[in-house]
Computed example of a mutant assay.
Amino acid sequence: MSHDCSQPAIPDGIYPFDARGVARRLRHAAIFGALDSLNPGEIMRFCNDHDPLPLLAQIQHRYGPRVQAAYLAREAGHVVIDFLVTTH
């Protein structure tokens, strides 16, 4: 499945987060803040220009099984990941 992050039409319960527009030094804090604001069952649809492997490790360490990641796109220059917040 492919997703165009420039399109604002997102179903209820899915919140877009385009990291490309956030200053690098603020990016991880902004992502954690966004994840902290979600309720169980809600999704943050994350868009970026590279695969954020260090970020994924930080999310796993910080949230454990409460946040699950699923790639929607994983191509050079275009990465989209759904972060699902669970009750675990």
Results as ranks from 00 to 15, higher is better:
residue 58 Q to V: 07
residue 39 N to C: 02
residue 22 V to T: 04
residue 65 P to N: 14
residue 20 R to C: 13
residue 87 T to K: 07
residue 87 T to F: 02
residue 69 A to D: 13
residue 31 I to C: 05
residue 19 A to V: 01
residue 46 F to G: 11
residue 47 C to E: 00
residue 58 Q to S: 15
residue 53 L to G: 00
residue 67 V to M: 12
residue 66 R to T: 15
residue 87 T to R: 07
residue 77 G to M: 07
residue 81 I to S: 07
residue 88 H to M: 06
residue 29 A to P: 12
residue 59 I to G: 11
residue 34 A to Q: 10
residue 27 R to D: 05
residue 71 Y to F: 15
residue 53 L to K: 04
residue 38 L to N: 05
residue 47 C to D: 00
residue 46 F to V: 05
residue 38 L to S: 08
residue 26 L to C: 04
residue 40 P to M: 06
residue 45 R to F: 10
residue 74 R to F: 12
residue 35 L to V: 01
residue 51 D to L: 01
residue 56 L to N: 13
residue 41 G to P: 07
residue 34 A to D: 01
residue 87 T to G: 08
residue 79 V to Q: 04
residue 61 H to W: 01
residue 56 L to K: 12
residue 61 H to Y: 02
residue 84 L to Q: 10
residue 37 S to P: 04
residue 87 T to H: 09
residue 57 A to G: 09
residue 26 L to V: 04
residue 66 R to I: 06
residue 62 R to W: 00
residue 82 D to K: 08
residue 53 L to N: 03
residue 48 N to R: 11
residue 48 N to Y: 15
residue 81 I to P: 13
residue 85 V to F: 10
residue 79 V to G: 08
residue 57 A to L: 08
residue 21 G to S: 04
residue 58 Q to D: 14
residue 79 V to M: 07
residue 38 L to F: 13
residue 71 Y to C: 14
residue 83 F to Y: 10
residue 57 A to Q: 10
residue 48 N to I: 09
residue 65 P to V: 14
residue 63 Y to Q: 02
residue 59 I to C: 14
residue 36 D to S: 06
residue 20 R to L: 13
residue 39 N to K: 11
residue 74 R to A: 10
residue 46 F to P: 12
residue 28 H to F: 06
residue 58 Q to K: 13
residue 51 D to H: 04
residue 49 D to R: 08
residue 44 M to Q: 09
residue 28 H to W: 00
residue 32 F to T: 02
residue 70 A to W: 01
residue 33 G to R: 09
residue 87 T to E: 13
residue 40 P to I: 07
residue 80 V to I: 09
residue 72 L to F: 12
residue 88 H to E: 11
residue 63 Y to R: 04
residue 55 L to G: 15
residue 24 R to D: 06
residue 22 V to H: 00
residue 86 T to W: 03
residue 73 A to S: 01
residue 79 V to W: 06
residue 41 G to A: 11
residue 53 L to D: 03
residue 85 V to Y: 10
residue 64 G to K: 04
residue 49 D to K: 05
residue 53 L to P: 00
residue 25 R to H: 11
residue 47 C to W: 00
residue 56 L to M: 15
residue 43 I to W: 02
residue 25 R to A: 11
residue 43 I to V: 14
residue 29 A to V: 14
residue 86 T to C: 03
residue 80 V to C: 09
residue 65 P to Y: 06
residue 72 L to C: 13
